[in-house]
């Protein structure tokens, strides 16, 4: 069975005046049908740019992205293929048109892609809303009347109404309250199970990732530094950055005081990336060999890939 999503050597560079910002510098990964792969990292790591490129919203400077065998550029241009890849955005209130009703919002993909008229799509919209836990009374409401959680559910209903095979989720719960987050994640999981969808889950919130992702790819400054099954990555992080990231996460540990051991320094700017390994400035294991070469991502154990000169 071939992977549903194949990202090969993705490069995305922006021109910002005279400066060039290398947001993504050669990222490759794949995802199987029904799998959730999480891209985690901090600001400047390129996960959002990667997500938008996978969804076909942004053009890659180099490299190739394929979904179900089709090039993502073709998917973006062809209304008959557009349904294959959909996306849910971080800020639900901004991802819904404030002047539209919920019904019209959720029906938009049907209207544009299938040219379905309003009457015909009504029932499908009601069903789609029910699948995300919203009743028919929401049809005539407008985004400003919705809470954060409700708005995100509407966005999910819209994304899923055309039965996509791949859904890119860009920090879908980051703007939601704690108590709502959990429910939305459960919803996403149950929908995935029902329909065998693949999720690309972008997040900086490790707790959500731990819950929903099968595999995790850790990104730093435009490259993937480590990939592996979720449980293993969290149990035994091999890359120094992954270790630092996990250790920085505040955990609820009422019995033991959480010893905060932060990583030193800050992420360099993507417009001024150091030669060699991008992480050397902050790495506790850094040595002279780290400045010489940018370590490639290679397999170190079953399913585990690591980009580090010091493979231990």
């Amino acid at each position: 069975m071939s992977p549903l999503l194949e990202v090969d050597d993705l490069v995305i560079t922006y021109a910002n005046g005279r400066r060039r910002v290398s947001a993504v510098r050669g990222v490759s990964f794949a995802a199987e049908p029904g799998e959730t792969i999480a891209l985690v990292g901090e600001s400047g790591c390129g996960k959002s740019s990667t997500a938008r490129a996978v969804a076909g919203l942004e053009a890659a400077t180099a490299g190739r992205i394929r979904v179900a065998g089709h090039d993502v550029g073709a998917i973006a241009r062809d209304p008959k293929l557009r349904h294959l890849v959909q996306m849910v955005f971080q800020h639900a209130d901004q991802s819904l048109d404030q002047t539209w009703t919920v019904e019209r919002i959720v029906a938009e993909p049907l209207a544009r892609m299938h040219r379905t008229g309003r009457g015909a799509s009504h029932d499908r919209v009601v069903t789609a809303l029910a699948e995300v836990g919203l009743g028919a009374e929401y049809l005539s409401r407008r985004p400003r009347d919705l809470s954060g959680g409700q708005a995100q559910r509407v966005a999910i209903a819209r994304a899923l109404i055309t039965r996509p095979q791949l859904v890119v989720l860009d920090e879908p719960t980051a703007s939601l309250d704690q108590s709502v987050r959990s429910r939305v994640l459960s919803l996403l999981q149950s929908l995935q199970a029902e329909r065998t969808m693949t999720y690309v889950f972008i997040s900086h919130d490790l707790a959500s990732v731990r819950r929903i992702a099968h595999r995790v790819a850790v990104m730093y400054l435009g490259r993937i530094v480590e990939v592996g099954p979720t449980a293993e990555i969290f149990r035994d992080p091999k890359h120094p950055y992954t270790r630092g990231l996990l250790e920085s996460e505040p955990r609820v540990t009422p019995d033991e005081p959480w010893e905060i051991t932060p990583m030193t320094g800050e992420t360099p700017s993507p417009s001024a990336i150091p030669a060699g390994c991008a992480f050397q400035g902050r790495c506790p294991l850094a040595g002279p060999e780290c400045a010489a070469v940018d370590p490639p991502l290679i397999e170190v154990a079953g399913g585990r890939l690591l980009a580090c000169v010091k493979k231990d």
Binding site: V85, Q94, L96, D97, E108, R112, A159
Partner: peptide
């Protein structure tokens, strides 16, 4: 704002 790319994902053209 994100509802514009969301509309593109729904298959909207520029006129839409």
């Amino acid at each position: 704002l994100d509802y514009i790319p969301a509309s593109k994902l729904a298959g909207s053209g520029r006129g839409d």
